[in-house]
């Protein structure tokens, strides 16, 4: 069983923090296939957060295919997150570098590049949230 915690000053929505903590635990192997997540009641009694926040996080994890809810029994992990994604990092990184060269050639300074990336990333994750 894992324990959740909440960082209130991070600016990250609470339900996203719960999702990140589950994904992190899956990546580290702390949570494995078949493991049970704490119930909504257990989480709210421990972290003092809104029950709907926990339900929303669990729903999102279910959409992502990481857990499955078995009525009356609880929410269980259905697959782990290996580090197979790491092999994909290198080509993505090269593409990002190519983009950075283009941005610099277009006359953007470091701060503009960072601001542009942050705002595009934010809009992207909001559109998918």
């Amino acid at each position: 069983m894992i324990e959740f915690h909440l960082e209130t000053r991070s600016g990250v929505a609470p339900y996203l923090q719960l999702i990140q903590q589950v994904r992190h635990a899956l990546r580290l192997g702390v949570l494995k296939e078949g493991d049970k997540l704490p119930t909504v009641k257990e989480v709210v009694a421990q972290v003092a957060i809104n029950p709907n926040t926990v339900s929303k996080a669990y729903r999102e994890l279910e959409y992502a295919g990481l857990v499955t809810a078995r009525p009356g029994l609880g929410t269980f992990v259905t697959r782990t997150l290996g580090d197979d994604s790491r092999a994909k990092h290198e080509p993505l990184r090269r593409e990002l570098e190519r983009w950075l060269v283009e941005a610099r050639a277009a006359g953007l300074d470091d701060e503009s590049i960072e601001a542009l990336f942050t705002s595009a990333f934010r809009a992207f994750s909001e559109a998918r949230a």
Binding site: V40, K41, V44, A45, Q46, V47, A48, I49, N50, P51
Partner: peptide, 11 residues
């Protein structure tokens, strides 16, 4: 107190 309150909300 808030933990208790949220627990009651679920229960």
């Amino acid at each position: 107190f808030l933990q208790s309150l949220m627990e009651l909300a679920v229960e």
